[in-house]
């Protein structure tokens, strides 16, 4: 994105919306794609993304690098990520503070890590490896979590702050994940955001979650299958008022709605960002 323009809101790119996007050219700031969906040799997915890329900035969001694997990054995968980045020239590249591969088996979920010094050192090494291979800074996203480990030595915000400081990576702040993890692990989302190393944030994610109520209590599950709930919008607005506009993505990956519904969510995020512009203009 041009440096003189204020950050915009974007949407996750879905093949279901191909016609609306290519024919209608909606006024959204950018699209984000999951890197692993474009690691095939060819075919319609690449043709679609090439046409989108010719019209919009694209952000690359990895879901398979397994940056927290005790056994190291999956051989070959980093090269494939680099090839997708080379081909589509994304304005942002992000991955997760999580792991998904162990002993060569890929579990297709963003699994949690214990927040201790040994894990921190490992993740810093892996982020270094990724940034050196790609030749650029990446963003690391705070995960949605459902449990914690015995013997953890620090809070997630401390872990992410140290990671960003020591590896030079940026952070992707997923506000829905904050709400989900806060409910599941029993912390206050506002206190989490107060403690978050916001100076490193380069992108924000917004999404919806499911509520699983049972006799022993409630768990929130990060499902990306519905609209952004009021609590997440409220935290987003507070963040933008505090930090100014940041690229903000609406993630909707399951039960994908018709394009106009997703576009309306993006427009709502955009209005929060423009509200942030106004506050900045008044303050100046």
């Amino acid at each position: 994105m041009a440096a003189d323009r204020s950050p915009r809101a974007g949407a996750g790119l879905k093949p279901q919306h191909q016609r609306h996007i290519l024919d209608g050219r909606p006024d959204v700031g950018w699209f984000e794609v999951h890197a692993e969906n474009y690691m095939g040799a060819g075919g319609p997915p690449h043709r679609f993304l090439e046409r989108v890329r010719a019209l919009y900035p694209v952000s690359l969001h990895g879901v398979g690098l397994s940056i927290g694997s005790a056994g190291g990054l999956t051989p070959g995968h980093l090269g494939r990520l680099g090839a997708v980045a080379e081909r589509y020239q994304p304005f942002l590249i992000s991955e997760h503070l999580a792991w998904s591969t162990h002993d060569g088996v890929f579990l297709n979920d963003l699994l949690p890590l214990p927040y201790d010094d040994a894990t921190l050192a490992l993740v810093i090494r892996h982020v270094d490896e990724v940034q050196s291979a790609l030749g650029r800074r990446i963003l690391i996203e705070n995960p949605s979590t459902y449990l914690r480990f015995k013997g953890e030595e620090m809070e997630e915000t401390e872990f992410l702050g140290a990671l960003a400081r020591r590896s030079g990576c940026g952070l992707l702040l997923d506000v829905n994940n904050v709400v989900v993890s806060a409910a599941n692990r029993g912390f206050d989302p506002l206190a989490y955001l107060d403690a978050f190393p916001v100076e490193h944030v380069g992108e924000i994610h917004l999404a919806g979650h499911a509520v699983l109520q049972d006799s022993d209590g409630c768990l929130l599950v990060d499902t990306h299958d519905r609209s952004v709930p009021p609590e997440v919008w409220d935290l987003h607005r507070r963040l933008i008022e505090r930090l100014g506009p940041l690229p903000t993505l609406i993630e909707w990956d399951a039960d994908v709605p018709a394009w106009p519904i997703l576009e309306a969510e993006v427009a709502q995020a955009e209005s929060v960002l423009r509200h942030g512009d106004e506050l900045r203009a008044h303050a100046a």
């Binding site: 214990p114 914690r148 480990f149 022993d216 209590g217 409630c218």
Partner: peptide
């Protein structure tokens, strides 16, 4: 390695 937490 999974710790217990209040609730679920």
């Amino acid at each position: 390695a999974v710790a217990g937490l209040p609730g679920p």
